[in-house]
């Protein structure tokens, strides 16, 4: 059985889809990814679809599912590299993929993921938090 490889990079999972997906393959990817988020405790998922020439309603639904499932599992999903023709087609098809974060390429996607996780807190551990609190004089 063919499989789409999922790579672990620090606290992120990286998926590059290089083949045209048929339904079974997409469904497997969906369940594999959610499993991986759980076992690796990943905080972010980056899906590169720059080699995908067709995203129909089924594939679109899978992408949306992955994003919402990861969200429940406390991970952020970013889809990167969508071809312009695919974007045009998706909108005309009636699938705006709202709720899915996107970026133009892998580099920008990684940056977005890092920022998202920073905003949610946790990662940086500033020792001098208290000092700053006193400075803004709200107390």
């Amino acid at each position: 059985m063919e499989k789409i490889p999922i790579l672990k990079m620090g606290q992120f999972l990286l998926v590059t889809i290089q083949v045209d997906l048929y339904d079974r393959l997409a469904l497997n990817l969906e369940s594999d990814l959610v499993q991986m988020v759980s076992t690796t405790e990943a905080r972010g998922v980056l899906i590169d679809i720059s080699a995908v020439s067709i995203v129909d309603s089924f594939m679109g639904r899978i992408i949306g599912n992955i994003a919402s499932m990861s969200k429940i599992m406390d991970a952020v999903t970013v889809v990167v590299g969508m071809q312009p023709a695919v974007a045009i087609t998706l909108i005309e098809l009636g699938l705006p993929l709202s709720g899915v974060h996107t970026a133009l390429n892998v580099e920008k996607g990684m940056e977005l993921l890092k920022n998202k996780i920073l905003v949610n807190g946790e990662v940086p551990d500033y020792d001098d938090d208290e000092q700053y609190d006193n400075l803004d004089g709200t107390e």
């Binding site: 020439s53 995203v55 129909d56 312009p84 045009i88 087609t89 098809l93």
Partner: peptide, 17 residues
Amino acid sequence: GLVNQTKLITAASELVR
């Protein structure tokens, strides 16, 4: 053109499904 190709193939994909 590429955009029309993509639209045609996506439509075909929906109908085949």
